[in-house]
Design a protein around this nucleic acid. Structure first.
Lengths: 330, 330
DNA sequence: CGCAGCATATACAACGTTATAGAATCGGTG
DNA sequence: CACCGATTCTATAACGTTGTATATGCTGCG
């Protein structure tokens, strides 16, 4: 920067002012500086800028594992949106382990970022509240629905209700639900299960707890969950996987066992990952407005970082959803 | 750091020395400093450290799009490996556009990272060579196989040869190859096609150019490629998708058109993404040693960064592969 | 014509760390 | 007991930027 200043015949600070769009600079001066910058191929040192300003223009994204398609697609969209606003995204994989989540919240990772997009899976609200630090955090997902935190999420209950309503409309009466959690009704599985039950009630259909199975939110979770139902001789004519991975795993297991889809059993999922469109049969599912989630969470986080006080604290945003009817449950 | 120094009754630099494992420090002094650090909850400022040392302990990863499962899985593994060596990975999506690739090579992104893992898809070798800068770069993939650059890749030709040999051994004679490129024989599609031809030759089978189709390396590419073959009435009894996404898309299209897998047409892919195991039928493919690729590329890049001169310049590493036989081509 | 007041540019210090060079301490040796 | 080398510690100056306060022109008004 010194060289640029000398070449342009101005002071160091004037160069800095030009770079920072300081208001009171004569056009002629500004042009001289810009010319000198172009001629010398100067690029500002971001590390020094960060040290002085206290900002890194990086957003932290904490998720369990990038190799999970839903998170990969989300991360990709978040990066694109952030990039348009002049920020980068630094990803940290927690493996859904409390220890990792905590260190992402407190440690060096936090220092490197101006704000956090956080998908807590293991930590509880109080622990997070106790270690939230001073920089802004926006929660993604449902695990933390607390008035103290900003939250961007999807319409879990409404969307799940729509899925079940669709299955019921198709004449299905015994709908197996795969991927439930252990009793919590405020996390994603809980909310989605609630939506499912609401649709059953609305249609006057019976809710049979024997049709609800807990499992990992992964393909093999869905495969073994549906397998266990079949092995135990539980009858069902539809499967609602609480996410697409579960539904796809279940679909695979059903096909392996010679069950026709969708005639024998209809299958529906949740998330609309890219893969759902190309499964065989293609998977009926719900698109939870991921683009909107990406845009609004980045927007909110950056507003908080830059001190724009548009929204009150603890803002909760739910993106719109869209039912995607495909061959697995037409 | 000043506060820690005061609390421990030593100088600023001694605290710094303790943090940097400087050799000549009395155990007693070191303990005093560590106690003071613990008591005050001090954490070193990474930005200041970077400014002074010129290192950020971040590695750049340039790839086209994180939402592509192969890249997502690779990125996930690279992050885990890097984390074990005390580095973070900063991802930049290029969208396979030359402009983005170039700015990842030169711009602020480069400044933020100590070294680059680069998957160039649009830029040619000479452009890269002209803008490579002074920090280390390790190439991932085949697009740049040049003695001037370090490269970590997979055994494309050998693995593809093994796939085709397997299809031939299963009695298939007319194998459609989906995802070829426009003539280049040194990129991934070219090398894999070469391996395919070598297997044909070894078995004395004829190579029919009409069976080779260019398409995008995505699900819809594979779907439309196999669709066009069927529409044109080209006969084939097997499909070799040059990556899994193509193969899965093709599989979907074949099933939609009522063709039985694997009886009517056998399908094989390349990459062994997680999804391949859970497709219906499960996809026969080749696992290209992604774990090994992640480990060795990070190892090599960090060695270059830290100035460990173990290997000569322009090192080329090819990870081992493993054929995964599944239901689509048993 | 002098001066207030705004527009424009600058000097200097500070952000928190590490590199360099040199000072203090210590045990052992001639 | 002076001196040497090895060990241990420290003072000072960077790294490259931006914030604060201040200086310098310039315009227009009384």
């Amino acid at each position: 920067m010194n060289d640029v200043a000398r070449a342009a015949g101005v002071s160091l600070k004037t160069v800095s002012n030009v770079l920072n769009d300081y208001e009171f600079i004569r056009p002629a001066t500004k042009q001289k500086v810009l010319d000198a910058i172009a001629e010398l191929g100067y690029e500002a040192n971001l590390t020094a800028r960060s040290l002085r300003s206290g900002k890194t223009r990086m957003l932290g994204l904490v998720l369990s594992d990038l190799s999970i398609p839903y998170y990969a697609e989300l991360a990709s969209k978040l990066m694109t949106v952030a990039s348009g606003r002049g920020y980068r995204v630094l990803v940290e994989q927690s493996g859904a382990a409390a220890g990792h989540e905590l260190s992402a919240l407190q440690g060096p990772f936090r220092q490197l970022t101006d704000g956090l997009l956080f998908t807590p899976l293991a930590l509880d609200v109080e622990t997070i509240a106790a270690h939230q630090g001073s920089k802004p955090i926006v929660m993604l997902g449902e695990h933390i629905a607390d008035p103290r935190f900003d939250l961007v999420t999807m319409k879990n209950a409404e969307a799940a209700e729509a899925v079940t309503a669709h299955l019921l409309a198709g004449g299905r009466r015994r709908i197996a639900v795969l991927g439930a959690s252990a009793g919590d009704t405020t996390d994603s599985p809980g909310l989605r299960l609630n939506g499912h039950r609401k649709a059953l009630e609305a249609a006057g259909a019976e809710f049979d707890p024997a049709l609800v199975v807990q499992c990992d939110w992964r393909r093999d979770g869905g495969a073994s969950a549906v397998g266990s139902l079949l092995d135990r001789g539980v009858r069902f004519d539809a499967v609602f996987g609480l996410n697409d991975a579960i539904a796809l795993g279940a679909m695979h297991e059903l096909l392996v066992r010679g069950i026709k889809l969708p005639d024998g059993v209809a299958v529906a999922g949740f998330d609309d990952i890219d893969e759902a469109r190309f499964a065989s049969p293609s998977l009926t599912t719900v698109a939870p407005g991921m683009k909107e989630i990406a845009e609004r969470s980045i927007q909110l986080l950056i507003d908080r970082i830059e001190g724009i006080e548009a929204a009150p604290d603890g803002l909760h945003i739910a993106a719109g959803f869209e039912l995607k009817l495909r061959d697995s449950a037409p």
